[in-house]
Simulated scan of single mutants.
Amino acid sequence: MTALAHPSRLPQLIKTGEGRLGAEQIYPRLFDAILEQRLPPGSALPEQALGNAFGVSRTVIRRVLGRLADQQVVVQRPSHTAHLAAPDPQQARQVLSARRLAETTLIGLATQRARPNQIRQLRQLVERERLHHERGERCTAIRLGGEFHLKLAQMANNAPLARFLNGLVPMTSLIIARYEAPCCEHCAWEEHAAIIDAVEDGDATSALRLMHQHLDRLEAKLDLDDAD
């Protein structure tokens, strides 16, 4: 079993970058550290230690942890130190099942309501995902792939469903980072690009088919049975 990160080691485990950072800059750095398992599942995340690591106040860290808690990546309880979620295979299957239900509804709405500027933003996001994938920066590519699905949900203009998915997609990124089979060659960015083409064309049937195929491949690359 991987040892949990000791608070004193957080500065070494997190790539803090240079200069004073805000919550929006800290969030992706902390999430990448989580996905790369430099911070193992179940690790405690003391606000003071994180603040010291990033050189910011506990108030800023509290905002970042609150966002991650909304996305179920971090578990917070009153009067307790926040800690990372550690989804087991059963929880992973439940998340993937719930996500499929939400995404297959949202993709149809997005196809009807997508605007040109939103399509352009999606393509830019997928281009960033491709670049990180080709550089071998796997976990950053995973995080950006999750952001693609959240942006797509926003295009559907259904706030309750988008909020629901916001609690599933980042958790899925955590599940992928933890359970993805070794030497997996699945290139999610290519499938994302194909989904954008279908959405831009207003082809709801193709968009739904591509989304199902994408989620099928996502689930197929996970070693959940071996983890059981």
Rank of each mutant, 00 (worst) to 15 (best):
A3K: 13
H6C: 11
L10W: 06
P11T: 12
Q12E: 15
I14D: 00
R20V: 14
L21W: 02
A23S: 14
E24S: 10
Q25E: 14
Q25P: 01
Y27N: 13
P28N: 11
I34F: 05
Q37L: 06
P46E: 08
Q48L: 15
L50E: 03
F54Y: 08
G55C: 10
S57M: 14
R58D: 02
T59N: 09
L65T: 00
D70V: 04
D70A: 10
D70Q: 14
V74A: 01
V75G: 01
Q76H: 08
P78E: 00
H80D: 01
A82V: 02
L84W: 00
L84T: 00
A85N: 05
P87T: 05
D88I: 13
A92I: 09
S97V: 11
S97R: 15
S97W: 09
E103R: 11
T104D: 13
L106W: 13
T111A: 14
Q118S: 07
Q121S: 05
Q121I: 06
L122Q: 05
Q124A: 05
V126N: 12
V126P: 00
L131C: 12
H132S: 10
H132V: 09
R135H: 08
G136R: 12
G136C: 10
E137S: 06
R138M: 07
C139P: 00
A141E: 02
A141T: 05
L144V: 13
G146F: 03
G146C: 11
F148H: 15
F148A: 12
H149G: 06
L152K: 04
A153D: 08
N158M: 12
N158V: 14
G167V: 03
L168S: 04
S173Y: 06
R178Q: 15
P182F: 09
H192A: 04
I195R: 14
D197G: 10
V199A: 08
D201G: 10
G202D: 05
T205M: 13
L210H: 06
L210E: 07
H214Q: 06
R217M: 05
R217N: 02
E219M: 15
K221A: 07
D223V: 05
D223R: 14
L224G: 02
D226L: 15
D226I: 13
